[in-house]
Design a protein around this nucleic acid. Structure first.
Lengths: 341, 341
DNA sequence: TTTAGCACTCAAGAAGGGGGAGTGCTAACA
DNA sequence: TGTTAGCACTCCCCCTTCTTGAGTGCTAAA
């Protein structure tokens, strides 16, 4: 869409002012605050045009104008200046994120916390999805009073454990033997290779422990079969309470309930799977309840493969410029953190 | 505190009505709805007395009365009828909770979900604190591209794992040997028994892997030293949004922020450590922001030892009777679930 | 094409009344 | 002595009315 220079300037001024104040913006305000060298009457005429184009709208007759969804879209696509983050902020992010990395989970949690702190919006980070699960190691460990811990380690480093009940008392060596036998048969298996034959083979060697074996096999099969669902981490979920457009409890409720439901979150986040940064404004979002929200997402990579998404959720009246910068930089910082891991 | 029969009846009627409707209750309403056999004028006189006793108060002149904090306290202590849960509800709880128990964590999560569903308030469940940590098992497992998973299992069944970077490439058998050596030296150790001597001994056997050993030892020491903090589980945190007294976003914010902060939650929950059911009304709670909330808690046991607390948080205008019943029954159901585990 | 001027619109806030629920008091009654 | 009917009074709530002011659209002149 091509548009006269001045119209663009006015649209930009109006959007910036509305984002900053939250009040409808009038022609006089624009003439006074943003020196465009024309009078308010001229601006008024242009604004009438902009309204006709559907880029701005009046909440009611004789109020100022506010950006329409389309207006935000035009701003984000054509007008917005993407100024990079200040070096100090970049450094802060890197220091926080790359300093004491322990494991994927805490790294991602940290990223979501950072994201919400820096933007004052709600951060959503979707963790990597695991691929095909191959069994790396199985270990049975006895605890006191007839409890056994079963630890299952997958090739991708994922660890799962479960406490099982166990009536017969075996000695420590027995468990070593049991683990060894299980490992010998199960190591390297993925679900596709899972056959009843495996069970038979182990069953043969361990028929004196039928019940325990059953439990173990069931669990192992479970762990293998779970296509590890990507977990979603939230940061600053309550930040929307600070937004004046969400001073109504009913509105807040809709959003917070949405955020509580992991499934919905994935749906919402899953949309922006195109590469690079995606900005979804208002009803562009898949979820009805998000019609007053915008979502800025970006995917992050590891070894050239997209492994997750991260984003910020705020009101449509959002500081797009800043949010985009933060999301952009955090994406690369997170990718770097993951690579170092 | 002793009080005339009729005053008690009026207080009870007033509280029940106020809990049900949320509106200040007038003398006429009580006379009409609760057949006490006296006229509204008489009730008016009694209500004046009750106000003088500090049990009820007027929001403003010539409105009805509402219970004061003291009034609720009197009601809970002296007037409230504790009717047991319906059998169907009991069965529902038991079926849900005892059916497919996998492990402590999901059991407790389920309990908190049940608690919030049944009461429509917010459920808070504090999980068992772990005692002294004794190392049960250490396992090193190689993954692809120079990564190693270190799995640490404690005597209480707790499993911790971490992915380590690792430059030298060793073969599978080497890891088995490494694990075996580590286990031989470390198994059964608690933090008190942790001595530099241990390190020296292993170091001796494994001097060719100094760096990895360093990482492992650091991590093991870490895991042992963490006094496993009791985790807190929330259920139905957004239920307070349904309460008319929390239709103001500012109030909601205070509570939700409180709920988000684990430390504060523990403090709040930690108060009611006396045995049995504890009801904290309004400012009896330790936290300023909870002055309009009541908290009903109870401790649950395993093997005769208190291992956790569970409770519901609602407005001071709370269905105490029902909430107490649910908390009471759920406490025993959860204890049974844990015992069976 | 731009601008000044002007009439017009409409939300928000202040002001002013009823209406109504509820009270306290008083006097009569059982 | 306790209970009740009656009544004046209080004060929130809701409705209407009025005013204010920001902002607009239109018109005519520069």
């Amino acid at each position: 869409m091509k548009m006269e220079e001045r119209k663009q300037q006015i649209l930009q001024a109006l959007i910036l002012d509305y984002i900053a104040t939250g009040d409808p913006v009038g022609s006089r305000t624009i003439a006074r605050k943003y020196k465009l060298g024309v009078s308010s009457a001229t601006i008024r005429n242009e604004m009438a045009d902009l309204e006709e184009l559907g880029l701005i709208e009046q909440p009611y007759t004789s109020a100022g104008r506010i950006p329409s969804q389309l207006g935000y879209r035009y701003y984000v696509d054509c007008l917005m200046e993407r100024k990079p983050l200040a070096d100090s902020v970049k450094k802060y992010i890197q220091d926080t994120l790359l300093d004491k990395i322990k494991e994927t989970e805490s790294l991602i949690q940290l990223a979501s916390k950072l994201l919400s702190q820096l933007t004052n919006y709600t951060a959503i980070v979707m963790a990597p999805t695991y691929g095909k699960n191959v069994l790396r190691h199985v270990q049975l460990l006895p605890l006191e009073n007839n409890k056994v811990v079963l630890v299952i380690v997958l090739d991708n480093g994922h660890v799962e454990h479960r406490t099982l009940d166990f009536s017969l008392s075996l000695r420590g060596e027995d468990f070593e033997r049991l683990s060894a036998i299980l490992n010998a048969h199960l190591r390297g298996l993925s679900l596709e290779q899972w056959k009843s034959g495996v069970f038979q083979a182990i069953y043969h060697e361990l028929d004196y422990q039928k019940r325990l074996l059953n439990q173990v096999m069931e669990l192992v099969e479970n762990v293998l079969s779970v296509e590890y669902e990507s977990k979603v981490y939230l940061g600053g979920a309550l930040n929307i309470l600070n937004q004046p457009e969400f001073k109504d409890v009913e509105k807040v409720k809709v959003i917070l309930e949405l955020l509580e439901e992991e499934r919905a979150l994935k749906e919402v986040l899953g949309m922006g799977q195109e590469l690079g940064i995606s900005v979804k404004i208002g009803t562009e979002n898949p979820h009805e309840g998000m019609k007053d929200c915008s979502l800025i997402t970006a995917t992050y990579e590891l070894n050239g493969k997209v492994i997750g998404t991260l984003g910020v959720l705020g009101p449509t009246r959002m500081e797009y410029s800043k949010a985009v910068s933060v999301v952009d930089f955090l994406t690369s910082a997170l990718a770097e953190g993951l690579r170092k891991l």
